[in-house]
Design a binder for these strands. Structure first.
Lengths: 211, 211
DNA sequence: GGCAAAAGATGTTATTTAACACAAAAACAC
DNA sequence: GTGTTTTTGTGTTAAATAACATCTTTTGCC
C-alpha cells in the first residue's frame, strides 16, 4: 500500500510550487495506483480526464503523456507499464483550478510544454536530417540522458529490445541490430544481451552529429 | 503609421481574455513595427525578450515563434519577413505579469503550446513515416489549412518556391519539382509559376495518407 | 534592352535503406 | 524436458531518394 503523504514528496517539481492547502487538496482528490509489467495505462482514443504523474517504475509511451489533457484532445497514443510502476492521477479539473489560483503552477506547466516543444522539433530534425548511424547514436545518448546509468556510469539503466531501439531511431529492426554491431566493432559500445554499455561517449556524440 | 488602438483588436485570440486595464497596459508597453520584405526579424542565438505577434503579412520562420521565450532558451532559428509585415512585440516580463494575474491568459498559452506540441509530433510522423509523394501532398494541404485560398477556394494564397516546398516536405528541390509535375499529370493540382491550384483535394488527401 | 543571377526542369548515377528470407539463440509455456 | 514463440543475427535483393550534371526559363538590376 502506498501512503499518499509520501507521494506528494515525489511529485517531482510540481509539489514545490503548491501551498500547504493546495497540497492537501491534491492529496485528497488524487488516486495512486500500481501497475504490473505490461499493464495498459491508457489507450489510443481515450479521453484524458486526469493528469498522470509517474512516481516510480518505467512506462513505455508511444508519444507523450501530459500533453493531451491540456490540448483538450483525445490520446493519439497508448501507454503501458514497461516494468512495475506507480502512477498518481489528478483530475484535470482540479489541475485547472490550481492553475487558476496559483500562477507559479501555470508557469511551471507552460515552461515544461515549451521545453517539450523544443525537444520535439529537435527530434524532428534528428530523425529527418541524420542517417542511420547518427540516429542510433543519438538514441543511445538520449536514453542515457533520460534514464541515467548504473553505478559504473556507463551502462544504461534501461534495457530496450532491438526493436525498441529501431522504433526510437526510426529504422528497421535489422538495421538497428546491424548498426549496434558496427558500434561494438568500432569500440563505441559493448552489448550484453539488452544491456548497452557506453565505452566512448565522445565518439558516440561525434557519430550522432556527423553519422 | 499604425494606431495602437487598432492593433489590440487584431491580436488574435489573446486580446479577448484581457481586462480593460490589462489591454491598456499592453498598449502602453507594446512596440509595433513594420518590416519590409526579406527584412530579418530575429536571428539564431538571439535572446528572446519579447512575445512577437504577427499582425499582418507573412513571415518565414524556420522553426517557431512564440516558443523560445517561454522555454527560456535562445532562438535556435531565424525569421524574416516573407512579404511586408507588421509585428507587435510585448516584453516577456509584462506577459509574465499578465499571466500571473490573469489565469485565463495562462490557459490560453498552455492550450496553444499543447496543441503545437501535438502538431510537432504529428509532423515528425509525417516526415519520417511517409514517402515523398505523401509528404508533398501533406505540405500542400498544410499550406491550404494554414494560409487559406484565394476567392476561387482552390488556389493557395501563398506562393512558395520549389525550394520552399522541398524544405517543408524534407526532400531535395529536384524531387519537389518532379513530384509536383507528377501531381499535375495526375490531375491533382495545376501549377502556374508558384501558384498552386488544388483540383482534387480528396485525391490529395488520399495521396497524403497512402503515398 | 541586355546581362547576370536565381529558379525551375529533367535525365543519369550512386547511395542509402527497406524488404525479405532464413537461421540461430533465447525466453516462455506446459 | 520438449515444443513453441519471440528475439536476435546475417545475407541478398529491390526500392526510394539524394547527388550531380546540364539545360531552360524567369527574375532582378543597371
Amino acid at each position: 500500500m502506498i501512503k499518499k503523504e509520501e507521494v506528494l514528496e515525489k511529485l517531482p517539481e510540481m509539489g514545490r510550487v503548491l501551498t500547504i492547502e493546495e497540497r492537501e487538496q491534491v492529496l485528497d482528490e488524487m488516486q495512486v495506483r500500481a501497475y504490473r509489467k505490461n499493464e495498459p495505462i491508457y489507450s489510443e482514443g481515450d479521453v484524458p480526464s486526469h493528469l498522470l504523474c509517474l512516481l516510480s517504475g518505467k512506462v513505455k509511451i508511444y508519444k507523450d503523456g501530459y500533453r493531451a489533457a491540456f490540448a483538450e484532445e483525445n490520446y493519439v497514443t497508448a501507454a503501458a507499464a514497461f516494468e512495475p510502476s506507480v502512477i498518481a492521477s489528478i483530475p484535470i479539473d482540479l489541475v485547472r483550478q490550481l492553475i487558476t489560483r496559483n500562477p507559479q503552477l501555470a508557469w511551471f506547466f507552460m515552461h515544461r510544454l515549451a521545453v517539450a516543444l523544443g525537444r520535439s522539433d529537435a527530434r524532428t530534425v534528428n530523425l529527418t536530417q541524420k542517417h542511420i548511424r547518427g540516429r542510433l547514436a543519438e538514441s543511445i545518448l538520449f536514453l542515457k540522458e533520460s534514464y541515467g546509468t548504473e553505478e559504473d556510469g556507463q551502462t544504461l539503466s534501461v534495457y530496450p529490445s532491438r526493436e525498441d531501439m529501431a522504433n526510437l531511431s526510426n529504422m528497421t529492426t535489422s538495421n538497428a541490430i546491424r548498426t549496434l554491431s558496427a558500434f561494438v566493432q568500432e569500440g563505441l559500445i559493448v552489448l550484453d544481451g539488452r544491456k548497452i554499455k557506453i565505452l566512448n561517449e565522445a565518439a558516440l556524440q561525434k557519430t550522432s552529429r556527423i553519422g
